[in-house]
Design a protein around this nucleic acid. Structure first.
Lengths: 179, 179
DNA sequence: TGTTCACCGTTCGTCCCGTACTATACGACT
DNA sequence: AGTCGTATAGTACGGGACGAACGGTGAACA
């Protein structure tokens, strides 16, 4: 089945995991939605990934593709046993690549930008995310089959809170140094 | 001078900023060192960037290149006025692209991996980083011309501490759910 | 029946990134 | 002096990741 062997990246497994959580079957659009509302906070990917990666995975036999005939000829992908197995194996391995944070606002501060506006904007942004998550969480809380999403959202919430704390202490430190 | 116009990315500015902090002149290797000991925590880049990006920037007129003749024909780059100006302009703009965290351990937990070992390993990793930074900080504290590095290290320290807190609360939550 | 707008899907070029590799310097040991 | 081991310095390259830009689809409303 692996007509075209490929290298599986973290993103590949992220996609496989989302299929798994969707019951093994989904369209790229479903995937895109799931991406935005669950893993964006610890594994961000651009939306094109939701279209490109399943195609890659299907070529290698980890998914099957079935094209619908309707107007928007959607493609429905489904996990194969190979896909499920690859995912399980990867998740069972307790090693993981080093975490990475990319924070342009902090980079700008480092580069000499005025910390005040930069950090304030960023803090506001995180606050907005928290609010957004509150709504998502309300929609998802207790719903059958949404436990994965819910947990992901709680992780996200914690992440944004910690970032706010970090940025605030950074802002305070900078301000102290100014004076 | 911009014989070959290029798009400046966050990484481009990171490199320019490091040149600036090095007094405007440095070799790729100097850059690589600076990369590892300062911005890795909020703007990680692979070491090849320290060789590739200056070449790109030089082609577009933001740096000048001067090749040494010695055994390791090092290339010494220096900021041009255009480079300095581009950096200043970028840093002065208070907007910044959304921050991104990539955390494979959390992704694995999301995908069904056993949280215990995954989170424990990650927490230990962050603790190691904290220790490492303690040493760096001792070496740099109060040294003339190292204020940039020092601040970057303090940001890094805060980041790792917050991540430890986040992962610990996540681990606690998961454990509670298990029981 | 047209216009508008939100939704859905894809293409493409460039940047990024990790792996693997080469080369130079230098001290240690014999 | 030779050669070995290791840290230091630099490069090549293939393919994944990214984002801008665009094109199609369908329902609402006039």
């Amino acid at each position: 089945m692996k007509s075209n062997p490929i290298r599986l990246t973290g993103t590949s497994y992220a996609v496989l995991a989302l299929f798994d959580q969707c019951g093994g079957e989904a369209t790229s659009y479903d995937l895109k939605q799931a991406l935005d509302s669950s893993i964006q906070n610890f594994w961000p990917v651009p939306h094109t990934t939701a279209y490109e990666e399943p195609a890659r995975l299907a070529k290698a036999g980890y998914l099957t593709a079935r094209q619908e005939e309707g107007g928007r000829r959607k493609r429905v992908y489904a996990l194969t046993e190979a896909g499920r197995e690859a995912l399980r194996e990867w998740a069972a391995d307790p090693s993981a690549s080093a975490p990475q944070l990319k924070e342009e606002a902090v980079l700008k501060v480092f580069a000499g930008g005025d910390p005040g506006p930069l950090l304030a904007a960023r803090i506001a942004w995180h606050r907005g995310k928290l609010e957004e998550f509150g709504e998502y969480l309300d929609a998802v809380r207790g719903v059958e089959g949404m436990e994965g999403q819910e947990r992901a959202l709680r992780v996200g919430t914690g992440y944004h809170q910690k970032m706010i704390e970090l940025l605030e202490s950074l802002a305070a430190e900078v301000e102290r140094a100014e004076v």
